[in-house]
């Protein structure tokens, strides 16, 4: 399992840098609408993944790693917009996001290490904030399920929670 994860990680990192997504100028120029490169890469990736993902789901094909594919879309909420606004500012300023930031260090852009340090700090900060909010919510109302702790009957198989 770990070996396969490592293999896919290497492939993903390789494709990100080979696709030029670890390059600041490439991303920056696309975000300035000087060219459509990043949007075309994202678009073509989605065009390939969408039919294959739904084929897996509809045909109930068994994935090699964990049984049939189950896609569980989460309920629509304001978190997608709020989180997206915060994420987008960082994305625009640094010209990178989570995965390419890690991959760009491998391409020799050592400054990406600062982005990664910030990344983990941000993830921890959000986690600490949620824990604090959950703790104060549970003292007010013990019966209510805290946000994010809703029980899910996860069965066997590959589950994509979105």
């Amino acid at each position: 399992m770990i070996a396969i994860g490592l293999l896919f990680g290497i492939a993903f990192g390789f494709l990100l840098s080979a696709g030029g997504l670890t390059d600041y100028d490439t991303v920056h120029d696309s975000l300035l609408f000087r060219d459509a490169y990043v949007f075309l890469v994202m678009g073509s990736a989605v065009l390939v993944a969408m039919p294959l993902l739904h084929l897996l789901k509809w045909r109930r094909w068994v994935t090699p790693l964990g049984g049939p594919l189950t896609i569980t879309p989460s309920k629509i909420g304001s978190k997608f917009v709020r989180g997206g606004l915060v994420f987008g500012v960082g994305f625009g300023v640094s010209g990178t996001c989570a995965a390419p930031a890690v991959a760009m260090v491998g391409t020799g852009h050592v400054a990406g290490l600062a982005t990664i340090a910030g990344l983990f700090a941000g993830i921890a900060l959000r986690g600490a904030w949620v824990t604090r909010a959950t703790a104060s919510a549970s003292t007010r109302n013990d019966d209510q399920l805290a946000p994010g702790s809703a029980s899910a009957d996860v069965t066997t198989g590959t589950v994509i929670g979105l």
Binding site: G88, G90, F91, C97
Partner: peptide
């Protein structure tokens, strides 16, 4: 870069995903 990384990490965890 630290600050923008922080925003990326915070926002990604908030919305439950990244790019």
């Amino acid at each position: 870069l630290l600050a923008s990384g922080l925003l990326i990490g915070y926002g990604a965890r908030w919305m439950g995903g990244c790019t």
